[in-house]
């Protein structure tokens, strides 16, 4: 199953205005892994994610998704393989109804209408949002929007899920439900987030990015115990690992 590999080698990227967002990033993610990408605001997480589906392309460095190096020719295949869930669901849900939105990708794959219908139903029931099918996106709650966003990506049956801040703006219960849902996915997952407690639940591996460089890459538990590393990367221990505010015990 080599086609689920994500490999990034010596990736550098500078924005047209001169901001150096990524300097020499390298890592390799294998099939079925669930990896968190953490780091302070502006560390380069989003820029990195935008490279994984070829929206940004830099001459420096190599990205391999599955068997393909990411180039203009393989772009279409790569985008089908890598499903991307955006931070703001309003950017992702642009069609008039939930159905249309989830069907958007499959229709672009030129699937027959019946197959499109099946895929939409499957994707929506996976995220538990089948009942929202005919609703317009602006009539959904934050949590529902997030679920539907994920369904739009699932309908493309990607091998790799890339998510930008999946738990942002969710109430505690919706957040918990989302985490439970993501746990059930067998996809290779790459999650950029500030929600370190979620990382503890979902990702066995964490990559810490600071000022466009990989500061650390290893098992989540180890990284979160490394106080020094966290402080240097403007991060804090997950709340769960901090002392109890009432009794002070950890």
């Amino acid at each position: 199953m080599s086609h689920h590999i994500v490999e990034v080698k010596n990736l550098k990227f500078t924005y047209p205005d001169g901001t150096c967002a990524l300097q020499d990033i390298s890592f390799r993610i294998t099939h079925g892994e669930s990896v968190a990408v953490v780091g302070e605001n502006g560390a380069g997480k989003s820029t990195l994610l935008l490279h994984l589906n070829g929206y940004l392309m830099s001459g420096n460095g190599i990205i391999r998704i599955g068997d393909y190096p990411l180039t203009k020719e393989t772009l279409k295949e790569v985008r089908r393989t890598v499903g991307m869930v955006f931070q703001d669901p309003d950017d992702q849900l642009f069609m008039p109804t939930v159905y249309d939105d989830v069907a958007f990708g499959p229709l672009n794959l030129s699937l027959p209408p019946e197959e499109v219908d099946t895929r939409v139903d499957n994707a929506l029931s996976t995220v538990g949002a089948l009942h929202l099918k005919s609703r317009p996106p602006y009539r959904l709650s934050g949590g529902e929007k997030r679920s539907v966003s994920i369904a739009t990506v699932l309908a493309m049956s990607p091998d790799i899920l890339v998510m930008d801040e999946p738990t942002s703006n969710l109430d505690p219960r919706a957040r918990r439900k989302l985490i439970e849902l993501l746990k059930t996915f067998k996809h290779t997952k790459i999650i950029a987030t500030h929600d370190l407690d979620m990382v503890m639940d979902l990702c066995e591996r964490t990559i810490v990015i600071h000022k466009g460089q990989v500061m650390a890459d290893g098992p989540t538990a180890e990284i979160f115990m490394n106080q020094e590393l966290l402080a240097e990367s403007h991060l804090e221990k997950p709340l769960r690992m901090q002392g109890c505010p009432v009794c002070g015990k950890t």
Partner: peptide, 24 residues
Amino acid sequence: DRAQRIHLAMLCRGFDGEIRVNRR
């Protein structure tokens, strides 16, 4: 900026300049 992000979201799901709607 939002338009740019939407465009990105569309590209990620195979947008090629043509919007298809499956509605009978």
